[in-house]
Nucleic acid binder design. Sequence first.
DNA 1: AGCACGATTAACT
DNA 2: GTTAATCGTGCTC
Length: 195
Amino acid sequence: MPSCALSSEFYSIPAPQAARALLGMRLVRCLDGQRLAGLIVETEAYRGEQDQACHAHAGRTQRTSVMYGPPGTAYIYFTYGMHWMLNVVCEEPGFPAAVLIRAVSVCEGAQTVALRRLGVKSAAWTDGPAKLCKAFDIDGRLNGSSLCQAGQALWIEPGQPVSDSLVSAGPRVGIDYAGEPWRSIPWRFRARLSP
DNA sequence: AGCACGATTAACT
DNA sequence: GTTAATCGTGCTC
């Protein structure tokens, strides 16, 4: 069955809406001809130069320029000296906004992920933004690439719809330096999965 | 200088 | 089984 990636239009909406809509979608990584995939279970929205937690808060720089580009583009950056993070650019070109993919639930290629995450229990393979990048071999080489073309290195396709009753929203994490209201605004979305 | 984190440790239930 | 504290690491500004 041919896979079909979410289109650029899907991401042309306010980042918090996109963050909610991405829950349950399937993140697909094509690695050495093999499909690795996971259902998105946690996201965070970052939106505009006004948002003190958004990288674009300091304006447009070489690093943040990707966020000003077309929706559906991967914004991948490096932080804390060792971690890569995957974001999807949202909204109209010229307006910096993105959704951080914080966690996925592996549904394809588990055998390969297990090899990439040797010594890590399956529950901890992809339950953090840097962990999923490591598990799926996502790094700066993919920064700026489009996520709207199925069959390339990385894309997002429809997965399992997640009903509102399974979604909880809360404040974003790791942004203590931001002031109000940005620090408390509930732009983090989680889907409670079925154990 | 400081950071959209993770692994490890150490204290609690 | 949880939450809290610590710190490594190297890229961006």
